[in-house]
Amino acid sequence: MFGEIVEGEMQLNELGKVTQNYWQRLPLHFTVELNAFTVMPNHLHEIPWWSDKLGRGEAFGRRIVKSDENSCPNASPLQPNGTKPGSIGAIIQNFKSISTQKINRLFYRSHHRQVWQRNYYEHIIRNEKSLHDIRQYIHYNPISWQQDQLHPDNPSRW
């Protein structure tokens, strides 16, 4: 969907460029820094980063996409009031929403396409070694694309 891997390097297509652009714009709307990230053919790897130096020790900011505060038709029983504003969930939710809207507006005018899966994988990085290892994984992911569990030719483990 977002491009292809050619000789171990990601070549973004127009959808991939839109995705990358909106990910890079997150710091304009949230108090969050971007660490390592890479857009892959069918997913995105990223490390959003925030700390006490940025403010309150959490991500916070204004929404990129406006929504009805009182309307949570798909709210989880664990979060009956919806996603907490400023949380990592809210940031990912906003990113997915705005990038999907832009992609659909630019490329799929006659019908809307689902761009992102409903959920996402998250992991708290607790030390420098873990941060280094995850950065390396993200950096080298295009090189090992043929073995990636998200490669369409590989059976899913999920």
Rank of each mutant, 00 (worst) to 15 (best):
E4G: 05
E4M: 02
E9A: 12
E9S: 10
Q11S: 04
L12G: 01
E14Y: 05
L15M: 07
G16E: 00
G16N: 00
T19N: 00
T19I: 04
T19A: 08
Y22R: 12
P27S: 06
L28W: 07
L28H: 05
V32A: 12
L34I: 15
L34K: 08
A36W: 03
A36P: 03
F37P: 05
T38C: 15
P41A: 03
N42Y: 07
H45Y: 12
H45N: 10
E46L: 13
E46A: 14
P48W: 12
W49F: 09
W50K: 02
W50P: 01
W50R: 07
S51M: 08
K53P: 03
G55N: 05
G57K: 10
E58P: 01
E58W: 05
A59L: 06
A59E: 01
A59V: 14
A59D: 01
F60N: 10
G61Q: 03
G61S: 10
G61P: 09
R62H: 08
R62Q: 13
I64H: 02
V65Y: 06
K66T: 11
K66F: 03
S67F: 14
S67Y: 09
E69P: 03
E69G: 01
S71P: 00
C72H: 15
C72A: 08
C72D: 10
P73N: 13
P73H: 13
A75M: 10
S76Y: 03
S76E: 13
S76T: 13
P77A: 06
P77Y: 07
Q79Y: 11
G82S: 08
K84T: 15
P85R: 11
S87F: 05
G89H: 05
G89K: 14
A90I: 02
I91Q: 04
N94E: 15
N94Q: 15
N94K: 05
K96D: 04
S97Y: 05
I98W: 15
I98A: 12
